[in-house]
Amino acid sequence: MITVKVFGRLTDYTIKNEFNLTGVKDTDQLLKTLFNKYPMLEGLKFKVSVDRKIINENTALHNGSEVAILPPFSGG
């Protein structure tokens, strides 16, 4: 099971700021699953963090992995 944490205005689309997913083996597959479930997320800019490390390429996920989806904030 993978835990997904969602931040900022991305929760407008996912409603929950934390949920679990099963059956995804890497981050590419996870994003595909998320875009299917929440089509509004596709095309938005955000960064993915896996087990508290920001990733720049597809990354394998394991049972218990924690993924965070981080959008940019601009307010001040």
């Binding site: 944490k5 931040f7 700021n17 963090s49 508290r52 490390k53 920001i54 720049n56 965070a68 981080l70």
Partner: peptide, 19 residues
């Protein structure tokens, strides 16, 4: 990178590397 959520008083921290 540190992200603070005032609502649940949680700090989420993640590491960043050059892209």
């Amino acid at each position: 990178v540190l992200i603070y959520d005032l609502r649940n008083s949680q700090f989420y921290e993640t590491t960043l590397r050059p892209d």
